[in-house]
Amino acid sequence: MTDRFASGARVRTVHHDPTHHTRLPRYARGKRGVIVEPEGRHPLADIRSQGRGDAPLEQVYAVRFAARELWGEGDHEVVLDLWESYLEPEAEAGH
């Protein structure tokens, strides 16, 4: 399996709002960020948390976001650890 994203790649988080558990925090949905680094493969938390044994093993990435992108203000940055399913290439997202 190869990683979908390389360090430095521009991504956008998906805009999902599932009824089940997810590890994509609400404040970081539909936001543009940059891949810092891959962190290793782990079972997708959304599936695993439902007690299912078929959670796909996915790369988790550290992704850096500007505060302005997340909150519309601020000069800091936030780094989040996100499963590959939560991310789309920024070009595909239409920007």
């Binding site: 590890r23 962190e39 940055e77």
Partner: peptide
């Protein structure tokens, strides 16, 4: 959302030009 203000409440006042990164360790 506002790390500089929260840190100040902890008594940790940083110079205005210090770049702050917040690490949200919500995965593995």
């Amino acid at each position: 959302r506002e790390p500089r203000a929260v840190l100040a409440e902890f008594g940790c006042v940083l110079p205005a030009d210090t770049e702050i990164t917040v690490w949200d360790s919500s995965a593995e």
